[in-house]
Simulated scan of single mutants.
Amino acid sequence: MTKTILTVSALSLMASATLALADGHQDRTGWPESFTLGTASQGGTYFAYGSGWANLVAEELGISGGGEITGGPMQNMALVHTGEIAFGLTTLGPAFESLTGNNPIAPGLQMTNACAMFPMYQTPFSITTLSSSGITSVADIPAGSRIGFGPAGSTSDTYFPRMMETLGVDFERRNGGWSDLGGQLQDGLLDVIAFAAGVPVPAVSQLEVQADINIIEFTEDEQAQILETYPVAPFQISADSYSTIDADVRSVSMWNFAIANCELPESFVYAVVDVIMSDNERMVNIHRASRSTIPENYDRNNVLMWHPGAARWFTENAGAMIDDGMIHQDM
């Protein structure tokens, strides 16, 4: 697995952090000296969101840690399951496929050692083109169009091609990081980019500054077809997400969850979840998609086993009702 590591050294443990740790996180038995969080490609929401929360946790807990560029949800499930990295970000669709042995990185391997930590946000599926293309709807996409679906194995690459086929679109499939695909769209090497990422997607925000673009919504019938066929929910991309749109855009979405290797110490994962979930404003400052990174969304997880430390945090601090059968137990 090829990957690039971007490790950010934590700041020295400040007096305030020392007090906070003394108050709630005294037991550091078995804690790692450093940690790595798997994100995705640069230009996507995972990279911005994940790198931000990794740095926040490192600073608050006084541990060296940071984000790592990966291939996205599928690879993150594999890396966290094997313990190659401590934490990762995934979407519940790829998580389900990984648990059932259908992860293309290791076909047949049931990746049951990756546990849920906390809810992140919904990933909308959205379509972007240059205005000069004349494409203003899914039906307008010409046969044989070159469509960029993001990194191979990503949520977008796993589900968006299937959705396009369901809607009758004939296309050439292309892969790459979101920033690279945005450049290819501007250079005329792609006709469409099909994004599955939390909004605003950094690559789209950059594109609309540099070019005139169209952000295309699904019709009601198209949305209904996708909802009937795939594990997604209805979603509206709000008009304030991009300067290009002046009304909400009809879409569909999947929930994203942060994951942890199930064997990490309970007290460590509890402390990490506490940093993230106890102050939503800090997370929103990292990325606006974090408006959904709130305790009450814990029940959006119906796929992954919970890490015991995370389950304890939500039970003690958010009144969560998590069935014992959904909490990972050491064998």
Results as ranks from 00 to 15, higher is better:
residue 273 V to Y: 05
residue 304 L to A: 10
residue 82 T to W: 09
residue 244 T to F: 15
residue 187 D to C: 03
residue 248 D to H: 08
residue 247 A to L: 10
residue 158 T to N: 15
residue 293 T to Q: 12
residue 75 Q to L: 06
residue 129 T to L: 00
residue 131 S to I: 09
residue 196 A to S: 14
residue 31 W to I: 02
residue 8 V to C: 10
residue 230 Y to G: 12
residue 287 H to F: 01
residue 267 S to C: 00
residue 297 N to A: 00
residue 130 L to I: 07
residue 140 D to R: 11
residue 50 G to T: 01
residue 223 Q to H: 07
residue 283 M to L: 14
residue 193 I to E: 02
residue 274 D to P: 01
residue 115 C to W: 07
residue 303 V to M: 07
residue 244 T to N: 14
residue 156 S to L: 13
residue 278 S to E: 05
residue 318 A to Q: 15
residue 277 M to H: 06
residue 230 Y to V: 11
residue 62 G to K: 00
residue 162 R to M: 14
residue 314 F to M: 09
residue 291 R to G: 15
residue 119 P to A: 01
residue 248 D to A: 13
residue 37 L to W: 02
residue 237 I to K: 10
residue 122 Q to M: 08
residue 17 A to K: 09
residue 211 A to Y: 03
residue 233 A to N: 09
residue 237 I to S: 08
residue 189 L to F: 04
residue 324 D to C: 06
residue 294 I to M: 06
residue 180 D to C: 10
residue 263 E to F: 15
residue 196 A to K: 02
residue 41 S to K: 03
residue 168 G to S: 00
residue 281 E to W: 09
residue 179 S to G: 14
residue 256 N to T: 09
residue 282 R to E: 10
residue 49 Y to Q: 05
residue 252 V to T: 04
residue 190 L to A: 04
residue 20 A to C: 08
residue 142 P to I: 12
residue 51 S to Q: 15
residue 179 S to N: 13
residue 302 N to V: 11
residue 151 P to H: 12
residue 238 S to I: 14
residue 160 F to M: 13
residue 155 T to Q: 13
residue 135 I to Y: 01
residue 275 V to L: 03
residue 58 A to P: 00
residue 222 E to W: 06
residue 139 A to V: 13
residue 53 W to G: 07
residue 131 S to K: 15
residue 276 I to R: 08
residue 291 R to F: 14
residue 130 L to M: 01
residue 239 A to M: 10
